[in-house]
Design a binder for these strands. Structure first.
Lengths: 349, 349
DNA sequence: TGTTAGCACTCCACAACAATGAGTGCTAAT
DNA sequence: ATTAGCACTCATTGTTGTGGAGTGCTAACA
């Protein structure tokens, strides 16, 4: 048996309807509300076929049909509407978002948080935004400053303008000259160096050159190490977690609790982000349906992600998490426009 | 009618039992499981009195009684156990927490997050930890550094070692001498200055002295302004939100959704934190029962908070949010020990 | 041969009803 | 003052029955 055009149309109709209502859809509904002009009996026959082919399921004998993961997959891959209406609506929303984003919000962190929030409010799904991850980091600038008699401040800037500070307590005051020397020592040796290349030998050499101040060098290197480490776990901002309660299929205690935990322990979400960053296809948009998600607590959800890219090769992820019956059309086109806007917006600056 | 000793004992027994089971407790239970040696009938009479006095409630005619807010209040104010057993157990838990906390975690942020998490795991309630809020801020150190030909880095350190950085783009390269001059200008004028005192006149003066570089000063002052602003909204870390699902009285969709939102939009929690910081009593521990909480979405919860204090007058809040029938004894003694440990621990350093 | 009307069948959802039992208030006896 | 006893209340649970949405199958039709 084969999936001819008519079957595709019926499947599409079933999915559309189910996305709207969340209720199993019966043959009569399809017969009435499509332009196929077929009786319910015919539809029934076709539906039986579609079920045999694995695109739809029957929750129980005398219920209508709901899409299977395979059905959703086909829909997402080949049946999205891409109507202008749909698209322009998305563009509209993205425009609004942009406006909000650009209201002179300066800090990256604030922008990303805001982005997650606006997206959540607009879509009614839970959202996630990962801060851009830098790959192939280079140390760009390193500096020790005297804040106080006993306190030194380390400032480390990594490619992509990620800045980190640490305070160092010193036993006895340093004079300005020594401080200058240490700074020169650090910068001449470390500037422009890929972080991976800072190894034990390197550190030993520095310490040796620093003479009696080698313990300060140690602490500075600890700070650098911390930067590297911190860089590994990506910052992730989430919003709209409460939206899951809008979908009964996700809001029973068991599931809700698991999902909330997943969103709270951002740990698990990093897997998702990592996955999207590596698995990335041509479009930069990915759709995980049900069990396809890398995070098992989300097996009853669908996840749509977009990868965005700022200058200097910094990549981040935007994700939308909702029920299987998510409005794929809207979500995907929103993400697409947002992505392209982001890509160009930040490249121009 | 008066609340004699026997009534108090019965009330206490009712509350204890209800805290454990979460079910309305009947006269027979009290009669059997206390050392009062009274028949259920007598207990019933007493219970009727207690109800009339407002300490307990009947969910419906033929159900047992549950404590009212007034009942809980009396319990918390005058009936906590303070058994050695209880206390030493709490100390034990705090010790474990300390150990985890002190495992060379360097960053304040990480410590606080960790603290919230450990507390949540140990208590089975949702927790909140606010980062210490600095009052009467002084600027301690300010510095411009050249990171790149076109990029300057501003580093601002405020009393209590809060450090902020901002990047500034410059149209044309600055030579080292000018940079030094600007730095001296900034530091001599701003160091040690309470943040409130940096006003327009001050800024105008600086700009004038900076001559052609006054636009750089502008940007630096913007950064300072951002620090002040950022300081106003307190950083709050939460954990164990999913614990609310362990208590049926909180986990119906409506309530759960509201609570989750409250925890996500930390905005609302700041009210709570502000309240505890200002309302603070002698002990530093506060208990909000049901409607007493300043956050209305938590009207079905009880909240126990502790205020801790680090050096330089930085104060923060630790909060535990659970159902009305929270294990007040355990929570309060845990927070008490944790608070005192924190207070002393950080004062010594 | 594809389509459709018709019919028997299935099974969930929902309401009505009864049984259970935990708990109460009240009264009368101790 | 305390308690045994009893009638009463009411949430919970289980049973049963009915309605309706939806199906699969068969037979008739174009």
């Amino acid at each position: 048996m084969e999936l001819d055009e008519r079957k595709r149309k019926i499947l599409q109709a079933i999915i559309r309807n189910y996305l709207e209502t969340g209720e199993p859809v019966g043959s009569r509904t399809i017969s009435k509300y499509t332009d196929l002009n077929l009786s319910s009996a015919t539809i029934r026959n076709e539906m039986a076929d579609l079920e045999e082919l694995g695109y739809i399921l029957q929750p129980h004998t005398s219920a209508g049909r709901i899409p299977s993961d395979k059905g959703y997959r086909l829909y997402v891959d080949t049946m999205l509407m891409e109507k202008e209406e749909q698209l322009s609506q998305a563009t509209q929303e993205v425009k609004e978002m942009q406006q909000i984003l650009l209201e002179k919000e300066d800090k990256m962190e604030a922008i990303l948080k805001q982005m997650a929030k606006v997206l959540a409010v607009n879509t009614n799904y839970a959202t996630l935004v990962s801060a851009p991850q830098v790959k192939g980091n280079k140390l760009k600038f390193i500096q020790l400053s005297k804040v106080d008699v006993r306190q030194l401040l380390t400032t480390i800037v990594v490619e992509g303008n990620v800045i980190k500070n640490t305070m160092i307590q010193v036993a006895e005051p340093l004079d300005d000259e020594t401080l200058l020397k240490l700074n020169i020592l650090l910068n001449t040796n470390l500037n422009g160096l890929p972080i991976e290349e800072i190894n034990l030998a390197m550190i030993a050499k520095l310490k040796q050159q620093a003479g009696i101040y080698n313990d300060i060098i140690s602490e500075v290197m600890d700070a650098v190490a911390a930067v590297i480490k911190e860089d590994e776990d990506i910052e992730i901002y989430t919003s709209g977690t409460n939206n899951i309660f809008k979908y009964p299929e996700l809001s029973d205690n068991q599931r809700a609790s698991e999902l909330i935990t997943t969103f709270e322990e951002k740990q698990l979400l990093t897997e998702l982000v990592q996955d999207t960053l590596t698995e990335e296809k041509n479009t930069g948009i990915q759709v995980y349906i049900g069990n396809e998600t890398p995070v098992k607590t989300m097996k009853d959800c669908s996840v749509v992600t977009a990868t965005y890219e700022l200058e200097e090769g910094m990549k981040g992820t935007i994700g939308i998490i909702g029920p299987r019956r998510m409005d794929y059309d809207k979500v995907i086109s929103t993400l697409k426009t947002l992505k392209s806007q982001l890509d160009t917006l930040y490249k121009k600056e």
